[in-house]
Design a protein around this nucleic acid. Structure first.
Lengths: 188, 188
DNA sequence: GTCTATAGTCTGATAGAC
DNA sequence: GTCTATCAGACTATAGAC
């Protein structure tokens, strides 16, 4: 099994982990240098500026998450899909001290350049679109409360998950994520 | 009218504004120095360390928000209280480029000392407790969907508001906050 | 590609005069 | 209380040898 990761991949992986923990302004090239085992100047070789690095990190993270979402069985009832999605979202939170990369960057957004904002928007749109399909389907098959606007329900649900990720970590109480799913299920 | 603010009050006010914009790791004593018009060493006179400043900022912010919440008419039906609360929360977002101070600090929490975590937790608890009362009341008076657990509904609703604050700013679309309230109203 | 060395800037924080 | 002056350390980033 050839699982050796390139230095470039290691940098991105650790950058993602660090940002999910401390945010964009809370980690440095030096932190990465120590984790990856190369000098900071070598990191600049791959990513000339920190902004370049974040942008690539967001792209990699989006692809990774979307890949996982696509594995959710299409034959499942809508209610089941929603449950799986929520559970998956909870699992990205590591040992409980990390939040979604794009939720974190949304908090840091006013210190980031426009291309990063667009990339983070892209992450939200992709997830919201997938969820809107599920809510629409749930309305049809009767496993979810009928909503006039599936897109609206999707945005509210995803926002609630992001907020719950924040408070789960704040209170060190993982259960807060499950409450969100329950709230949207009993609904309507 | 004697509305002159002390230097100390100005520092806290600007610190709150800056953190709601850029987060804890995105502002400096120098920024404050320029806004308030005193040297950074003078700021250190009032707040020896940055952590001291954040802690006082959270206390001041909590008091301010809770004060506003308490002005919501107790005679209003639960549904109306929820609407007022959501609208108030939206108004704290300034020109649209700020988010709730404690939502922001929840994102930065892993870079902050324990006393700040406790203070931020206090802010969330206070708001969630108030909302739990409203949800319980709404179940009784029939203006809100009956929930087995008003506390759970309160936490999910507040998390959704925090998440919507994040995405409203990300997309520069204020409307996302209103969607949350609508989602919880049609519910159940 | 990775390194050493370093530039240039910003950071939080302190000492001490007034 | 506010200032000047300064510290030690961190930061992103670059030049150039190997």
């Amino acid at each position: 099994m050839e699982t050796t990761k390139t230095v470039r991949e290691q940098i991105i992986d650790h950058a993602i982990t660090l940002m999910m923990l401390r945010g964009y302004n809370g980690f440095s090239y030096r932190d990465l240098s120590e984790l990856v085992g190369v000098k900071t100047s070598s990191i600049h070789y791959y990513f000339p500026s920190k902004d370049d690095l974040v942008l690539e990190a967001v792209h990699a993270y989006t692809q990774e998450v979307q890949g996982a979402v696509q594995t959710i069985d299409a034959a499942l009832p809508a209610e089941g899909k929603l449950a799986k999605f929520a559970k998956m979202f909870g699992r990205t939170l590591g040992e409980g001290d990390q939040i979604c990369l794009c939720g974190m960057l949304a908090a840091d957004i006013e210190t980031l350049p426009e291309p990063v904002r667009l990339a983070v928007q892209g992450f939200f749109k992709a997830n919201e679109n997938w969820l809107a399909e599920v809510f629409a389907e749930g309305g049809r098959d009767g496993t979810l409360p009928t909503s006039a606007k599936p897109e609206q329900a999707a945005r509210a649900f995803f926002a609630a998950l992001q907020g719950a990720g924040l408070t789960s970590r704040l209170f060190r109480a993982k259960g807060r994520l499950e409450e969100v799913e329950a709230s949207f299920k009993l609904s309507k």
